[in-house]
Design a protein around this nucleic acid. Structure first.
Lengths: 161, 161
DNA sequence: CACAACTGAATTGCGCACAACTGAATGGTG
DNA sequence: CACCATTCAGTTGTGCGCAATTCAGTTGTG
């Protein structure tokens, strides 16, 4: 297989720019699209992701939401607090383990799911992709993510050590 | 072609989750990898992107960097100020048009390019992708981004109006 | 049982992203 | 020429993402 490492120096910074940048740009474009599509629901994109997890798997501790979304408490704690302010969830210290906080959907939070069903329809229209494209894109992205996570965990590949 | 809109309600929120989420996750994974790879250079990932533009196209106004990176002054102004603090660039009001600020590489900024050449090598090793994969991924991402931008510009597709 | 190691959530601090706004400079139109 | 709209940077405010720290609660070990 041909790897980037075999290309000459001068092309590297250009090519590199285009790969990482296109992903960066795509992520922000998605964010912009969701911002619009979620305006009706008064949710931000990450808040929507948290609600998806709750709708799918039901009430659960902060820890578990974090594992699912790959987010730590530094991000989730304030985010969930905002969802609580909005009346969509409640947060309660677990009785069995006092360290854990269980996040529960309120009636309003559960009810919001009905309106949220419109969102993926709008998004899918906006992407202009068919199912085959999406499957392919997702497969590539997941492969990249896995490889990148492994590289970060390893460390040596990246730090130049 | 088969579009997502034809799928039943119940699958929508799941599938949707996976697409948008996998992109979100990949973008953050990339960010984490760059964070490590750029530690040596004392640059954040967006700062690195700005430097890439300057290395590639030379001194230029803030406006032009913004167009290239799709970032507005609200993001760029403080970012460039930090690069200036770090001694990598200077910012000067243009003589012809006093509204415009030209960003110029300092000697240190120009010199940094040499060390930056290592970065894409490390990243490409970390992604585990070959040139064909990358080309494909990039093509898909650019198609999505274009479609998404068009949808945001249009607006009607997304707001449900 | 006591004490150290660990775990889960929260907080702090920094940087990015974006909307909304300010303010100065420029350009066009009547 | 005067006025108004536009343009470019910058600022403010909000929310996310992550590192680092804190703190209470839990678990494992001697």
């Amino acid at each position: 297989m041909t790897t980037l490492s075999e290309l000459p120096d001068e092309q590297l910074l250009r090519l590199d720019h285009q790969i990482c940048f296109s992903l960066h740009a795509a992520a922000r474009a998605f964010n912009g699209v969701y911002r619009l599509a979620l305006r009706d629901l008064d949710l931000t994109y990450p808040q929507y992701l948290a609600m998806l997890v709750l709708w799918e798997d039901g009430d659960q501790p902060v820890k578990q939401i974090g594992e699912r979304l790959r987010l730590d408490s530094g991000t989730l704690s304030p985010l969930l607090k905002r969802l609580e302010m909005a009346g969509l969830v409640r947060r309660e210290r677990s009785a069995e383990d006092e360290r854990s906080v269980t996040v529960r959907l309120t009636e309003a939070g559960t009810a919001l799911r009905g309106r949220a069903l419109e969102v993926p329809r709008r998004i899918s229209r906006a992407t202009g992709l068919d199912v085959a494209d999406i499957t392919e894109l997702r497969a590539l992205l997941e492969r990249v993510t896995t490889a990148l996570d492994a590289a970060v965990a390893d460390g040596a590949t990246l730090t130049g050590a």
